[in-house]
Amino acid sequence: MAEALPDCVPFRIRDVDNARGTEVSKAYSGDLDRMVRVGEPNMVMPREYMQHALTYHNFPVRPNDVFITGFPCSGVVNLAWLLLHYLNIEDARKERLLVARVPLLESKALVSENLLAMANQSLSGGLSIHSFLSSLEILRDMKDRRLIRSHLHVDFLPKDVLTAGCKIIHIIRHPKDVAVSLYNLHRRTRKFKAGLNTFVRLLTREMIPFSPYFQHGEQAWLLKDQGNVRVVFYETLVGDMEGVLEGLSRFLGVEVTEQRKADLKDTITMYNTFNAQDMKTPFYDAEADDDFVTAGEVGHWHNHFSGELHLLINSWIENRLANITLEYPYEV
């Protein structure tokens, strides 16, 4: 049944049809039992989003806020970690919880009662979970320049983000690597049990949270010529970390001094040494087999796609790219 909130937010929110909802719920062992589609791009979200949509829409931004955005598993967390340490390396060392240092704006919309119950039963991350769910309160109390993570499509970020002087850094990653990394993340955090083939079919049919993938990147790409929006490709970041971070520093109005260049080398060393444990989601199952580090590799998809599954994802990519302006700097 369609459901709209015309007096609250300037976009429609409606239930995913029962057949599709049941299919998703079964694949996720009942965790994602109710889904909604949001606005014209039909962004897919857990139904919990409805409770918080107005709060996110009206979230009070500050002119010097920095939003780090992108589809899940595109490198948002990686980039947030790097920028946090590079811009203020001493303060970053004092607090290890990334969820508290660079909060995820829409965290409460992602956590169902089932997921929270599973987390409390199987994980030992009470403080981390509390910090994750307290993102809005943490952001409200921050005194210094705020780095804010979000996987929301640009159209559904706070209403004033493009007019208040905020900066948006949007990161895009190869869709095949996103598929593999997101599959691994969801089977460890959302009890996805249906296998990679089913996950890719759900992704290509745009039934995974924050889908559709290509429209997600397209919205940011269309804004790339505005002075306050920068699009970064994950593969470029990995290949030229120093160059990308120096460019982003200038974009953020931060002077690149010799000391800052030295700090940058320290930041990259720390990233390569500590990033795996520091960046895990608080809902990560510590007992599951762990390929978290390899999930960040460029081209990791080669180890997973072949035959009909590869044909399926290639067809999806070809069809979607034909209808958007987004240009990857490499062959997709």
Rank of each mutant, 00 (worst) to 15 (best):
D285S: 03
V238L: 14
K94A: 12
I168F: 09
E327G: 05
W316A: 01
N58F: 14
R62K: 12
I317W: 10
Y328I: 03
R140H: 10
E218Y: 00
V61D: 05
T204S: 06
S211W: 03
I13T: 02
S74N: 05
P212T: 00
T204N: 10
D289Y: 11
S124Q: 10
V76G: 02
H170M: 02
D240Q: 09
K176C: 05
L152C: 14
G253M: 04
Y271F: 13
F305A: 03
N303L: 09
Q277M: 11
V66L: 02
C166W: 06
V102R: 00
M279L: 11
T204G: 07
L147A: 10
P212A: 10
R190M: 15
S249T: 01
L127R: 14
M43A: 06
K159H: 06
L5W: 10
E48M: 08
E255D: 13
E23Q: 12
S107T: 07
R250H: 05
I317C: 09
V9M: 01
R96E: 04
S112W: 04
I169P: 03
E137Y: 13
P72W: 03
Y86C: 01
P175I: 07
G75A: 13
F292E: 07
D291V: 15
L115D: 01
L252G: 00
I172G: 02
F233I: 08
H57F: 12
R14M: 13
I324E: 02
P41W: 07
P158D: 09
V36K: 03
E137P: 04
G125A: 13
L321C: 08
T204E: 13
H216I: 06
Y271D: 03
I208W: 02
F11N: 05
R101C: 06
V102E: 00
D65S: 03
N272S: 13
V24H: 01
A117W: 11
R250N: 05
L321E: 05
L79I: 04
D160Q: 15
A117L: 07
A164Q: 14
R320D: 11
S135H: 08
L139S: 10
A27F: 03
V229A: 03
F59Q: 05
W221Y: 03
F305Q: 05
V254C: 11
E3Q: 12
L182T: 04
F199S: 06
G217T: 09
P41H: 04
F305E: 04
H216T: 09
G217S: 10
R140M: 15
F192E: 02
T267C: 12
L83K: 00
A53M: 11
